[in-house]
Write a protein that binds this DNA or RNA. Structure first.
Length: 709
RNA sequence: GCCGAUGUGGCGAAAUGGCAGACGCAACGGACUUAAAAUCCGUUGGGCUUUUAAAGGCCCGUGCCGGUUCGAGUCCGGCCAUCGGCACCA
């Protein structure tokens, strides 16, 4: 994939040139320029944040679901606060592109792509007067001639500069009302479009026509430039807005087989009309041509916009890593590496204050760093640790670096772009942990600390386990299953095996205590295969265990089990692996003698599923029979012999017209003619082919099918 | 609204296009036991039907409708339902 080119470290923190916000990102410790907040990877911003009064902290966009906190479901309101941000948007392009070479479920890749939300289009300048211009972002520059008005987000900073005096009261009132609305009200509840005319006009760059400028809360400050051109003929939202406020509507894209008038409301690709520069061109070339025209006339350029916002990285809670920052004369600086790690001081009360002031602010002595410097009291969110713990796991004792270079190369190296070979986690992390960790990993990679640009090569999503009532487990529903209780009652092996036996790993499935019991019974049967209770009530090695060779049938089932378990582990089909081991145990349950060699093989197969039970039985065998060197976990994984699985005689289903009529037991060596002859004689078949048949199909070792009509 | 996933017995689920329901749970019957628990053995998709019975026979059945095929739970097209994600993103 030309990894070096795509992940060129010389471009450290250089952003895509067409991005709409700032151009360069630099780590806080190296930047020496004038306005650090505009370029730094970590920066401070006064932004409207998601404030959750109940949790007493702000939350990232990813942590807010339907206007409520992801944790606890408490209401979240917009509130301006001074906060630390991480410039994840600088990585938007790479976070999308570099998903391609990861072995992740397509669904998760899609969730991330949608969350990052890349859109290609153009940035266009509308002249307000001779000096001032308003930038809009559009994915449909080919509809520029159809722009009959403009809308700015109510919070847009330019508004105050041009709003007319007579419109000012209405505009101010609208802005105040918009500010009070929660996100929930602004979207879900506001089905009806609202807006206010500013009294001002701007010139459409393609034809110099004056179009009215409105403000409306259906335009979001945080996306694109916070301003749009209204093209009511070819955008559903704009059309609704224009109809409500009686703004003019001009069709500029003609749909195939429709008149220009009928094309109003058409949002697909068509042919440009009423657009001198691009008339007659289909949508795609029209876009290209109009962008070229805009660039040539200095009215705009091609641009890419992302839905992804920068990551709000501070929290007003005690339990999080403190930010290694001090404030001097209203300026911040990073603490020296030698001062790390920062250990938070003990407090009398660790609960959030509820006012937005972080709990650490209460530790007055700790906060006073020096005569003129105060410590930052915000802490990092829970995600900070999960962004790099897997790196620390490579080298947990290292007290020089977060991970030693050699250890990092050993564990995280390899030919693929991702470091961790296999990562198992739930879908709930799709746009949280899995996005954040990729971002940090790329930053560390760019700084030269890591050998791979991606953290997790292969991702498998395990399904969540529901309560016994088939509902999501939650305290309020009272359907929580506590693993500790289950382990107390049935043991860790049974708990572990049951989770694997429940069904396919990726599927969500309900818990069942009966099911746990069933698996516990299976493990008890395994135990009794090896151990019997004597008169005194002590467990001793079963007298049936003999140091003999397994017979042919026993060998066959043993090798079938090795094959199935081995293959199923590879494909994460743990449930069917356990089924096969149950079949194996059932086959030996009433045996007169039990060959020790087969049992040893079986224990090795079962060991990854039930480690405690199998190690104990392994050692018990060593006391009664010739001891095998090494712990059970050190044994070689068994290998099956295909030859021992081969049958002399096979069963072949016989059909007439595709319907099953009986089964034929016949030697594998039988010829096609022999098979047909024998099949014809099966009573039910004979009955059905009395009038003969027009053809007969024999699929080797699979099926015989007579076709009669 | 858009995107994605999933639909198979009473339940969790199996099934390279070739005997649907392996394995487990639950239920029922039996053995063991003074009794119970535990354990072991057996039956168990639905409907109709033959026979004194033991045992058979026929039909239907993998969300619904259609298609491909000798043959479809599996492949293709359309629909329905449930769950998850996004949701004024210009």
């Amino acid at each position: 994939m030309g990894a070096r080119d795509q992940h060129d470290r010389s471009a450290v923190f250089q952003m895509d040139a067409v991005d709409l916000s700032s151009d360069i990102v630099e780590p806080i410790s190296t930047y020496r320029g004038e306005n650090p907040n505009s370029v730094r990877l970590a920066y401070v911003a006064d932004v409207p944040v998601n404030w959750c009064p109940e949790l007493g902290t702000v939350l990232a966009n990813e942590e807010v679901v339907d206007g409520k906190s992801e944790i606890g479901g408490f209401p979240v309101v917009r509130r301006p606060m001074r906060q630390w941000m991480l410039r994840i948007t600088a990585y938007a392009e790479r976070l999308i592109k570099e998903l391609d070479d990861l072995d992740w479920p397509e669904g998760i890749k899609l969730l991330q792509r949608n969350w990052i939300g890349r859109s290609e289009g153009a940035e266009v300048e509308f002249m307000l007067d001779k000096e001032q211009k308003i930038h809009v972002f559009t994915t449909r520059p080919d509809t520029l001639y159809g722009a009959t008005y403009m809308v700015l987000a109510p919070e847009h900073p330019l508004i105050e500069r041009f709003v007319t005096e007579e419109q000012w009261p209405a505009v101010r009132e609208y802005r105040e009302r918009a500010a009070r609305k929660s996100d929930l009200e602004r979207t879900e509840l506001a089905k009806e479009k609202t807006g206010v005319f500013t009294g001002a006009y701007a010139a459409n760059p393609v034809n110099n026509e004056k179009i009215p400028i409105w403000i409306a809360d259906y335009v979001l400050l945080g996306y694109g430039t916070g301003a749009i051109m209204g093209v009511p003929a070819h955008d559903e939202r704009d059309l609704e807005f224009a109809r409500k406020f009686k703004l003019s509507i001009l069709p500029v894209v003609q749909a195939e087989g429709k008149t220009s008038e009928e094309s109003i409301g058409f949002i697909g690709d068509g042919v440009a009309i009423n657009s001198p520069v691009i008339n007659g061109l289909p949508t795609q070339p029209a876009k290209k041509k109009i962008i070229a025209w805009l660039e040539e006339h200095n009215h705009g350029k091609s641009a890419i916009s992302y839905k992804l916002r920068d990551w709000l990285f501070s929290r007003q809670r005690y339990w999080g890593e403190p930010l290694p920052i001090v404030w001097e004369n209203h300026k911040y600086r990073a603490l020296d590496e030698r001062e790390l790690p920062i250990v938070p001081p003990p407090l009398d009360d660790y609960k959030p204050t509820g006012t937005g002031e972080p709990p650490l602010a209460k530790a007055k002595e700790w906060v006073r760093y020096s005569g003129n410097a105060l410590r930052e009291t915000n802490t990092m969110p829970q995600w900070a640790g999960s962004c790099w713990y897997y790196l620390r796991f490579c080298d947990p004792q290292n007290d020089e670096r977060f991970v030693g270079e050699e250890a990092e190369r050993y564990w995280m190296g390899g030919p693929k772009p991702g470091g961790v070979d296999l990562y198992v986690g739930g879908t709930e992390h799709a746009v949280l942990h899995l996005l954040y960790a990729r971002f940090w990993h790329k930053v560390l990679f760019d700084l030269g600390h890591l050998s791979k640009p991606e953290p997790f090569q292969r991702l498998v999503n395990q399904g969540i386990i529901l309560g016994e009532d088939n509902q999501k487990m939650s305290k309020s529903r009272g359907n929580i299953v506590n693993p500790d209780d289950v382990i107390d009652q049935y043991g860790a092996d049974a708990f572990r095996c049951y989770e694997m036996f429940m069904g396919p790993l990726e599927q969500m499935k309900p818990w069942s205590m009966r099911g746990v019991e069933g698996v516990a019974r299976f493990l008890a049967r395994v135990w009794r295969l090896f151990m019997n209770e004597n008169q005194a009530g002590e467990w001793v090695l079963s007298a049936k265990l003999k140091d003999v060779d397994p017979d042919k049938a026993e060998q066959k089932i043993m090798h079938a089990t090795i094959k199935k378990v081995t293959e199923d582990i590879e494909s994460f089909s743990f449930n069917t692996a356990i089924s096969q081991m149950m079949i194996f145990v059932n086959a030996f349950t009433n045996a007169e003698t039990i060959p020790v060699s087969a049992m040893r093989t079986f224990l090795i197969l079962l060991n990854p599923f039930a480690p405690h039970l199998t190690s104990e039985l392994w050692e018990k065998l060593n006391t009664g029979f010739k001891a095998v060197r090494g712990d059970i976990t050190e044994q070689k994984w068994p290998v099956y012999d295909e030859a021992l699985l081969a049958e002399d005689e096979i069963e072949i289903p016989v059909q007439v017209n595709g319907k099953f009529q009986g089964v034929l037991n016949i030697s594998v060596a039988a010829t096609k003619e022999e098979i047909i002859n024998a099949a014809e004689k099966l009573p039910k078949v004979k009955q059905r082919i009395t009038d003969g048949y027009i053809k007969v199909l024999v699929v080797q070792n699979k099926v015989v099918n007579f076709v009669t009509k």
